[in-house]
Amino acid sequence: MTEQPALEVDKLCCVRGDRELFRDLSFGVDRGEVLHLKGHNGSGKTTLLRALAGLLLPEDGAIRWRGESIRSLREDYARHLLYLGHLNAIKGDLSAVENLRISAILDGFEITEDRAWSILGEIGLSGHEDLPTKHLSQGQKRRVALARLLANQATVWILDEPFTALDVAAVQMLQDVIQRHVAGGGIAIITTHQEVAMLGDQTRTVVLGRHHA
């Protein structure tokens, strides 16, 4: 084993419009670790997460997965990745079961209808599995989106404010899910305004935009 971390950010610089959000940002995350991104509004947390997911082309610098740039890996990197942004990425006209099964297929694996039902039950959506998701509440929609975490086998989870719109019970459950994922050798990169001390001692913190505050 080399000392190189699994996911490595090297002198990253991101620009939004005219504004340079950060420059020379370097850090690494290894399997079994949680990376907690902090920073005030507009400090570039979401931008950094999108860059880490490969959605956004950084102005300068590199992001490497196991030593190779994610831009050259593209689909090979996407296989290991699960990104959950501000948007739930669920279709209002489809039911929770349909949404979950389609996102699984797109992620490259198939889940049976029974499996989808049991995952949705686990995440607390019993009785709502078959409704078009546009009739669900904000928190329930978020749960449908989060159900992907239980179905997916990806190593790297990138979660942008995953706790918003969730009630206390759901927050607790999501923390457990993240903890289990990390304990099993996964990586979780999250932004949140909530305290996440309970995410465990394997938590690293990166603070963005410190010099502006």
């Binding site: 689909e75 996407a78 948007l87 669920i90 996102s103 797109l106 490259g108």
Partner: peptide, 15 residues
């Protein structure tokens, strides 16, 4: 684009 499924499509292992 609006509901975020498009960005998920860009992040799948599918071409």
């Amino acid at each position: 684009h609006r509901d975020g499924t498009l960005e998920q499509m860009l992040l799948t292992p599918q071409p």
